[in-house]
Each structure stands twice: as C-alpha cells, then as structure tokens.
Amino acid sequence: MKPAKFEYVAPATVDAAVEALRAANGEGKVLAGGQSLLPLLNFRMTRPAVLVDLNGIKDLSFIELRGDRVAIGALTRHREIEQSPLIGSKLPVMAAAMRYVAHLAIRNRGTIGGSLSHADPAAELPMLSLFYGASLLVQGPSGRRTVAAEDFFVDALTNCLEPEEIVVEIEFPILQHDGWAFEEVARRFGDFALASIAVSVRRRASTIEDVRVAVMGVADTPLRLKEVEAKLRDIAIDNQTPDRFSGLVTSCVSANGDLHASAEYRHHLLGRLARRAMQTALATKG
C-alpha cells in the first residue's frame, strides 16, 4: 500500500516535462492531481521509473473565453471549474455536472487533464468533452497536435496518447440551446456513476431543431449518441417526446453489468434518466 521507488522531477514548463518523459524512455508517467494515479501507485498497479509532476507548471491552469469557445488548461482543478462564473454562463451543463465529480477534497486536487487522460468510462468530464465536441491540444517530442474528443477515448482507462505526450489544454465549443439537463445516479453521492446522461435541445417554435446527447456508465467509454440526435431533428415536440427519446437512447446502447449493478439495471436506469432529462430540457429555458 505504498508506492514503489521512483525518480521525481517537477519541471517548470511543458517543454521540460515532455523532455523528461522522452528521457525516461517509456518508463515515465505524468502526475497531475494524483487522485487516480496515487491510488494506482499505492497499490503498485503501476510502477513508473520516473514521475513527472506537472503541478509546478503555472501556465497550465486557466479558464478563458476564446470567441465561441471556452479553453481550459489541463491542470485546472475540478473545484475551479465548479466555481467558475465563465463555465456557469457558457458551459452550464458542465457547471451542473461538477458537483457529481467525486468529493470536495478530491475536487480540490483533481484536474481536467488528468480526468480526461485517465479515461474512466463513468467519469463526468470525459463524457462532457464528447457532449460539447471538445478538442484537446497535446504536446509531444515532435510538437503539438489537436485531437478531437471523439478520437481520444479508445477503451476503458485507455486514451490515444503516445507515452511521451501531454494534454496541454482543452477547448469546448459553446453550444446554443434553449434547454438542457444533466442527470446521474451513483450508489453514493460522489461515487462514479452507474449511469448518466447530458442533453441539450435547440427548438424552433414547437419543433426540435437540434439535440445533443451523451451518456456514460453503460459502455467502455462515454458515448455521444449521434444516431439519436439525427432521429430527433425537425421532429414536432409533444408530450410523448421524453418517452420517445428514452426509447431511442436505450435502443442504441447495450449496458455492461458489474459488481455495482447488472446490465439490465443500468439499461433501465439510463432509460429513466433519459426521459427525466428530456422533460427538464424541454421545460427549461437557457
């Protein structure tokens, strides 16, 4: 229950961090908030030779408006996102989801870059990055590149990064919507979700102009359901819409069962959450 030995480096710049990873020859690991990595180190489920601590890199922590996007530095803590007035006004679905991310003491340390990189299938920020269609700026030995969130999550706890690449920042397009909802059920508040859904709706009079929907906890990665989005476009809204939406969502995911909940239960739960989310999204303005 204690980490094995490692070399510790705390570079002051991203360039130096990438160089430290390169010098570690595949044996290096990046440390951000440590809220997922430290448990793995304590259990010795991972034993890197070199730990590259990003916490000394000051310009990795910011939230800023860039035209029709909000950019968030990789080292920005969950708690800063939870409190940010800019996130509250421009990315309200994310703002609403943050209180579901673990517990205060973990939000005080955990970072958005770490959460995305860890790629837990039941974590809120990975799902929201798909929901918003975010793009990740990553830096490696051969420079910087941009990765779309939909290409980033490869499998449970697996992202598409090369071992020497670091997530630097994430850009979230601001969605235009008339209503939205975020719903989640976990066994205990702050635990990883059993199922969760984010929805936003743009309407033209009583017709759906556009829907965005992403779910998690029911597959090896979070999912954006483009199929469902396409089927609801230009549909007239009536009191059957939430049920219809729920049916579409459940028909295109097949949940996995585990220790915490059976596949049937998760599937059922997702349907209920979908209906509730659509009811809320159609009822609210904003």
Binding site: Y8, G34, L38, L104, A105, I106, N108
Partner: peptide, 19 residues
C-alpha cells in the same frame, strides 16, 4: 486522512510529501 493544504481539504494519502 483528510488535512487542509493551503486552506483546502485534500487526501493526504493521495499527495506526496514532496508536493
């Protein structure tokens, strides 16, 4: 193991002393 670090609660088991 929760302690306050610079005024914020953190898990002291998920932080290295050097940090």
């Amino acid at each position: 193991c929760t302690v306050l670090v610079n005024g914020d609660s953190v898990r002291s088991c998920l932080m290295l002393a050097v940090q």
